[in-house]
């Protein structure tokens, strides 16, 4: 399989004779991360190049400790980069910001706030120009989209993990980020709830088409959600090992996908990579 992202980012893409100045939403260029330790530097990531296009959903799969989460938190701006660059729409990132929404592995809601207030926290931040009613509508819209229209005024601490993560999804979409970063958001849930939330996520995503980068260790989840699955090699000095294009049409239904001829082919490819 050709590693088509290993070359440098072109400034102009010509596709079907049309010039796109920046079809690239997120650009990781020669990214490097080093943690100093008493026994010399520990290189987590090195020479990592990846370009993610507008409206693309990319999942990243790899073994735990391979530096996936480090990479994602660097994109989020929560972890300083040691070398190379990260840019969003050709602008290098400076620290964290609401243009890159993050859904964390734990829902990390403020437990003392209601679901609505949790979503509102971010909405107020990025829609200071909106009316109070409008802001509330935004929150309610996304909360109802994740199936929580009966629980606007429930305290986050009263909800189950799965319900809390739904709020996490609503909160991330409600601030209309340019890029959505998901760090194993369903890793702590059982597989039925995980499936439900994948459906919730992909349903909103189908409407909004926000460029998304998601870390997962679940092969089926990676295939179901993604346009491309990026496989990372194990650390130290982790980099991109392989990329798999998933050519299922959207919107996808889980049922039709698992019966598709290619499904188990993709699955085998990913499991092969992970096993070796």
């Amino acid at each position: 399989m050709a590693l088509k992202t290993q070359h440098k980012r072109p400034d102009i893409i010509i596709e079907n004779g049309i010039q796109y100045t920046s079809k690239v939403m997120l650009d990781l260029n020669d990214l490097k991360k080093v943690y100093p330790t008493p026994n010399g530097d520990y290189v987590v990531l090195e020479n990592l190049n990846l370009q993610i296009m507008k409206e693309e959903f990319v999942t990243i799969i790899g073994h735990s400790g391979c530096g996936k989460t480090t990479m994602l938190s660097m994109i989020a701006g929560l972890n300083p980069i040691s070398g190379g660059s990260i840019s969003v729409l050709s602008n290098p990132i400076k620290g964290p910001g609401p243009d890159r929404g993050v859904i964390f592995q734990s829902p990390s809601l403020m437990p003392w706030l209601t679901t609505l207030e949790n979503v509102m926290l971010g909405v107020r931040q990025v829609f200071p120009h909106a009316k109070k009613k409008e802001r509330e509508d935004i929150c309610k819209y996304y909360l109802s989209k994740v199936g929580l229209d009966g629980s606007f005024h429930k305290k986050a601490s009263e909800l189950s993990q799965g319900m809390q993560q739904r709020v996490g999804i609503a909160r991330a979409f409600a601030i209309k980020p340019k890029v959505l970063l998901l760090d194993e958001p369903f890793g702590m849930l059982d597989s039925l709830t995980r499936g439900e939330l994948q459906d919730v996520l992909i349903e909103i995503w189908n409407k909004e088409k926000i460029t998304a980068v998601m870390i997962t260790h679940d092969v089926d989840e990676a295939i179901f959600l993604a346009d491309r699955v990026v496989m990372m090699t194990s650390g130290p000095s982790a980099k991109i090992g392989d990329i798999l294009d998933i050519d299922f049409q959207r919107p996808r239904s889980r049922k039709s996908i698992i019966e598709h001829d290619d499904y188990y082919k993709y699955r085998k490819h990913l499991i092969d990579f992970l096993e070796h």
């Binding site: 409008e134 309610k140 229209d149």
Partner: peptide, 14 residues
């Protein structure tokens, strides 16, 4: 879902 909420047409400010 029972109630349909409408989304105001607004762009975020960063």
């Amino acid at each position: 879902e029972t109630i349909e909420y409408t989304l105001p047409d607004l762009e975020p400010k960063y």
